[in-house]
Amino acid sequence: MLNFMLQLALLCITISMGILVYRVIKGPSIPDRVVALDAIGTNLICMIAVLSILLDTSMFLEVILLIGILSFTGTVAFSKFLEKGEIIENERDL
């Protein structure tokens, strides 16, 4: 029963990721695509959590934190590029 529920959850996450991929391809503006990519990262975290229950192992738990950190850094870098035009400034003008 639990296995079936977990596989159903995986299917639902896959469908939502498919819809997000549609938004990444179609999205009229670049911020739309950035938000969709961030949401795909979050869905990937959920997928790994469900998968680690399904495979009955705790070895994937580091990957969850890792993807969270990387997706946060990537989104911040993208949004800074969209706002200021450069990602790492030499000297900030206050």
Binding site: I69, T73, I88, E91, R92
Partner: peptide, 21 residues
């Protein structure tokens, strides 16, 4: 992977502040 994570923390500092800081 530990080294990559540490440099990712420094990169986050670089993003929020600037190279000189």
């Amino acid at each position: 992977i530990g080294g990559l994570m540490t440099s990712s923390a420094i990169i986050l500092l670089l993003l929020a502040f600037d190279l000189k800081t």
